[in-house]
């Protein structure tokens, strides 16, 4: 990772945080509420978490095993949160 790539990742993370905050503040008025909002928030946090794992933690060039463990954690946690959310709806 060179400095330009690291800065790009930083910028993407900031924009993604702004998106999460926006959904919290005015999501309802934008028509993003309920399950679509939940799925969007999970997708945003997955994208952010994946970038932190690959580029900040430096696992991008490392054997799949290690990337798989951390990105697998993100996927598992997201799936559990989505399942609990779905149970709450029914």
């Amino acid at each position: 990772m060179n400095t330009r790539q690291l800065n790009t990742v930083w910028a993407i993370l900031l924009v993604a945080t702004l998106a999460t905050w926006t959904i919290g503040e005015v999501g309802k008025h934008l028509g993003i509420a309920g399950p679509p909002a939940m799925l969007t928030l999970l997708a945003i946090s997955f994208v952010k978490g994946r970038l932190v794992v690959l580029d900040f933690m430096g696992l991008r060039g490392v054997k799949f095993f290690w990337r798989g463990l951390l990105i697998g954690w993100l996927l598992l946690v997201s799936a559990l949160i989505a399942t609990a959310y779905w149970i709450a709806l029914t």
Binding site: T20, W21, I23, G24, A37, M38, L41, L42, I44, S45, K48, G49, V52, V53, F56, M57, G58, L70, L74, V77, S78, I81, Y85
Partner: peptide
């Protein structure tokens, strides 16, 4: 550094889950 990024990673899930998702 890896430990510090882990602390960040956890908050990236915590913030939407606890503060925003409803």
């Amino acid at each position: 550094a890896a430990y510090w990024h882990m602390v960040d990673l956890v908050w990236i899930v915590l913030f939407p889950l606890v503060y925003v998702m409803r």
